[in-house]
Design a protein around this nucleic acid. Structure first.
Length: 906
RNA sequence: GGGAGCAUAGCUCAGUUGGUUUAGAGCAUCUGCCUUACAAGCAGAGGGUCCGCGGUUCGAACCCGUGUGCUCCCACCA
């Protein structure tokens, strides 16, 4: 079979995806093996995968595939989130484009459109997950509005209500005027900006309504500062500090709200900072949380001057129906015209924006549903603080987590939307309310507690609102196994708790903390043992990815261009846990190149397939075995024996390292390790060492060993790059389709031979040093040299001299006892190597270089000697450290001598 | 205003209890190679005040203090 010049991912990826799926490798059912469960952070059902998802899914797939290949019953549950606000606003937008106003629809009509939308676009995200190579169990795909899931959410609501952990009440909440719904505190994002502070004059009057003199000289008014002049019509007091002498005489006096002339009292409270602005504060209880609290304390009237959509209400008296920001402009100019606007000032401030709609959030008093958080937070805090749940990277997030849980406020869970789980509260026409899992139960309860239903025709009205999306997703690790709707079922018992949660650090409060709360509350068990926080994916300039900037690449286009393996490589290669990742297409190119490198190694090995010889012996040197003048006789077998032993040891060592790397979730580092093992150790060293000469046969044993090394490498790399590894695994030995890497189990770890590893390192060092010298002396790669070795222990070279000769293109290796004249000299550790350059040596340049090196070595020797001469060092340092320093010293002495000899010879 | 984290080569980052560190890797750069697996490649090379200052120690990139710069989270001063 002819192998293509370069690796071509497209056909390969589709083929294996299909095959894996047909073989049901990723379908999990409980069995005797330990479970390794991962639940996907469910993406928005109508969204597309962005680079952040790509990173998360890749990390999860690596962990899941590794576990599957290590004896675990791996189960990765995919799914999607109904994402109430985000999806509803998309559907509303879509309807608007079709000329349909949401308000003209009934709830059921709207939901029908929404479900149609979900059916149409919900599959996109699943398709992308599969394209990326994610080994999820599609049979378990769960949507947060599936029937059982919906019921579970309702059941939890009712349960928490009955336990007194959910309540309904009027509070000041965050209001999104664009989506026209309440938001939780977490859904508000603050942004710094420059605003304008308007200084306004309020006229003062006494008890009888007569104007009085006031601090604002000659004007009879008091000056206050505000960012929001459009709310003045909601003012119900002016507040000053009780100890502020400027205003002491205003006790019992009143101010008049400009433009509408409403009379409001002057009140005194220590809340006011007398040094800020004018020291006088307008109090607008309906539109500011602080003012609201002040209002409660001083029993002030609440005048809500805004409608739900952010326009001015009847209560505002003027500019009714105008948007708050338009009204602000008009009010400012009217205030200016009428002389109430005294001055304007630029001002650094922060405004809250709705995370979903982007609208400026309005503090608003409204009746909503809340979850009491205090009680539930304690076990969730303990689980993390005690180390029952491990967060990676740890120290960075534990403090944040702890602070939030210790200061958590009640969670506003009702949303004035239709898309989501409808709150299971029912009302009769007299305002009585019951909470029940369904209408039937509600009627029963209403009859029992209030006796009202039958008298009024059995009609109850269900609460219009739906629940916050996170009120459903906090049950995710439990309910994907029906752990809430069918508690104690076999699957839930087997798969829960899950192994690891991989998610972005931005949803630590929204989701992670709340899942822990729910898990502790309902199972008394943590939902996962480890949390792996990925950083945010940014562009290469460090900017967030956004549609506006157009710097958010399309995943499918990237996969088309580079292949899914290359995308996985690119996103993983520099993404240490918890650090932001600067996404650069160059890293995908690197991934593509790596795939190609592996592909070409396959081509090389496959070329040997027809030239395997049982009689070739183990020697497969490309050149005639070089003549070696030595007391020790190297056998021709040595070359391949050493290469095989060495690589086997490298392989075993790296396998061991990888186990540690996995257990610490250092996946990026693990990928680098494998990259280097394959590219450097396997391709650049091992394959070059054992490569037969042009059209020479290869020994059968060497060939078989090489195939099994290659296989082992593919197996180790499989979790990271599943497609190309599976493909190569099959091509290597022309395997049947049933024998697949995706489910192949790792062999037990083996020890590696440290002596051989050390010899290998020495060999690499010597080869590089001699090649460097060849380069510097302008020898062409084809120019043969004769290599002379001056070594204390010739035995050290017995195993490696043939490889050495081959790799530096030497026709002979001669062991000598003293330095020959007129040669290039190279010192590696304690040994010296010489060859004739056959060309004019650039003695001046060489001299300078040697001189520079000499100085460096002398300086080094000095520092080591000083250290060893220091009595306190010799007394305090560990013996092995001292040994090491002595070795360094000895090596330096030898090297200095070598350099001096070379200098003398020039 | 409170808290957390970071600062090592042009870029992105390793550096695990202070001593194999004479500080490493990948990418980028430079030099030489179209060597029959691979130019998406091969063989090499150059490149660092480990943010500044002070301290602890026989010894500091690492520990302590301090300053500077960046990032993030939290918070109800108009």
């Amino acid at each position: 079979m002819e192998l293509s010049k370069n690796y071509q991912p497209q056909a390969t990826e589709d083929k294996w995806n299909q095959h894996w799926r047909n073989s049901a490798y990723f379908t999990s059912v409980p069995d005797d093996r330990p479970a390794y469960t991962v639940v996907i952070p469910p993406p928005n059902v109508t969204g597309v995968l962005h680079m952040g998802h790509t990173l998360n899914e890749t990390v999860q797939d690596i962990l899941v595939r590794k576990a599957r290949m290590s004896g675990f019953n791996a189960c990765w549950v995919p799914g999607s989130d109904h994402a109430s606000i985000a999806t509803e606003s998309k559907v509303v937008q879509m309807l608007k484009e079709q000329g349909i106003d949401k308000n003209s629809l009934t709830r059921d009509e709207f939901l029908k459109y929404a479900f149609e939308w979900k059916e149409k676009y919900g599959g996109i995200i699943y398709n992308q997950i599969e394209k990326l190579g994610c080994s999820v169990d599609w049979n378990r795909a769960t949507f947060t509005m599936d029937d059982h899931y919906y019921k579970a959410v309702i059941k939890v609501f009712v349960d928490l209500y009955n336990k007194g952990l959910i309540y309904r009440g009027a509070r000041m909440i965050n209001w999104d005027p664009a989506a026209k719904t309440a938001l939780s505190d977490e859904e508000v994002e603050f942004r710094d900006l420059t605003g304008t502070l308007y200084y306004l004059e309020y006229k003062l009057v006494n008890e009888n309504g007569e104007p009085i003199e006031a601090p604002l000289e000659g004007r009879g008014g008091i000056m206050i500062a505000t960012q929001r002049p459009e709310t003045i019509m909601g003012d119900t007091a002016i507040c000053v500090h009780p100890a502020d002498e400027r205003y002491a005489h205003l006790k019992g006096k009143f101010a008049l709200v400009p433009l509408i002339n409403r009379r409001i009292p002057i009140i005194f409270d220590e809340y006011v900072d007398a040094t800020f602005g004018t020291g006088a504060l307008k109090v607008t209880p309906a539109h500011d949380i602080n003012d609201y609290n002040l209002g409660l304390k001083h029993n002030l009237e609440v005048v809500d001057t805004l409608n739900a959509d952010g326009t001015l209400s009847e209560a505002a008296q003027i500019y009714i129906g105008e948007d708050r920001f338009a009204a602000r402009k008009k009010i400012v100019s009217e205030l200016d015209e009428k002389g109430f606007l005294l001055k304007k000032e630029e001002y650094q401030t922060r405004l809250g924006y709705s995370q979903r709609s982007g609208a400026v959030v309005e503090p608003r008093i409204s009746t909503q549903w809340f979850v009491k958080m205090k009680e539930m937070s304690a076990p969730a805090l303990k689980a993390v603080v005690d180390g029952d749940i491990n967060i990676h990277p740890g120290d960075k997030f534990i403090a944040t987590y702890k602070y939030w849980l210790e200061n958590v406020k009640d969670w506003c869970i009702s949303r004035q939307l239709w898309w989501g789980q409808q709150i299971p509260a029912w009302y009769d026409d007299q305002g009585n309310m019951v909470v029940a899992e369904n209408e039937y139960d509600a009627i029963q309860q209403m009859q029992n507690t209030h006796g009202t239903v039958s008298a009024h025709g059995g009609k109850l009205v269900q609460d219009e609102d739906v629940l916050d999306t996170w009120f459903s997703s906090w049950l995710w690790p439990m309910e994907v196994f029906k752990g809430i709707s069918e508690p104690g079922n076999k699957e839930a018992e087997y798969y829960y708790p899950t192994a690891v949660l991989v998610t972005g650090q931005d949803i630590i409060f929204f989701w992670v903390a709340r899942m822990i709360m729910a898990g502790m509350h309902y199972k008394n068990l943590k939902p996962f043992s480890d949390v792996y926080f990925t950083g945010m994916v940014r562009d290469k300039l460090g900017r967030k990815m956004s549609k506006q900037l157009g710097n958010s690449p399309d995943l499918l286009l990237l996969i088309d261009k580079y292949g899914a393996d290359a995308v996985r490589f690119g996103i993983m290669i520099s993404s240490p846990a918890g650090n932001d990742l600067l996404f650069d297409e160059a890293s995908l190119e690197q991934g593509r190149n790596f795939n190609n490198k592996i592909w070409n190694a396959l081509k090389l090995v496959k070329m040997w397939q027809g030239r395997v010889s049982d009689h070739a012996g183990k020697h497969s040197t490309p050149i005639e075995a070089p003549e070696v003048t030595t007391g020790i006789l190297s056998s021709p077998e040595a070359i391949s024996t050493f290469a095989i032993d060495w690589f086997e040891s490298r392989l075993n060592l790296v396998r061991k390292e990888m186990e540690t790397t996995y257990s610490q979730f250092r996946l990026s580092e693990g990928l680098k390790t494998l990259y280097s093992l394959i590219w450097d150790d396997f391709c650049s060293w091992y394959l070059e060492w054992i490569k037969p000469g042009f059209e020479q046969p290869i020994d059968a044993e060497v060939y078989q060993k090489t195939l099994s090394f290659f296989e082992a490498l593919m197996q180790m790399l499989h979790p990271f790059l599943p497609f190309i590894t599976e493909e190569i695994y099959h091509l290597l030995k022309d395997r049947s389709v049933e024998d697949d890497l995706a489910i192949k189990q790792f062999e037990p770890l083996k020890e590696s031979n440290h002596r051989i590893l050390a010899e290998g390192e020495l060999l690499k060092k010597v080869i590089s040093a001699i090649r460097d010298a060849r380069n510097k002396n302008q020898l062409k790669p084809k120019d043969l040299i004769t290599l002379s070795v001056l070594a204390d222990e010739r035995e050290a070279y017995a195993d490696i001299e043939l490889i050495l000769a081959k790799q530096v293109n030497a026709d002979r290796v001669i062991y000598i006892k003293s330095a020959p004249a007129n040669t290039v000299v190279i010192a590696v550790e304690k040994d010296k190597f010489y060859f004739e350059s056959g060309k004019e040596i650039d003695s001046e340049g060489l001299k300078m270089e040697l001189q520079k090196d000499l100085e460096h070595q002398q300086k080094f020797l000095e520092s080591v000697s000083k250290k060893l001469g220091n009595e306190r060092f010799v007394v305090n340092a560990r013996p092995e450290v001292i040994e090491l320093e002595k070795k360094k010293q000895a090596d330096a002495v030898v090297r200095i001598k070598t350099i001096q000899e070379s200098l003398a010879g020039l």
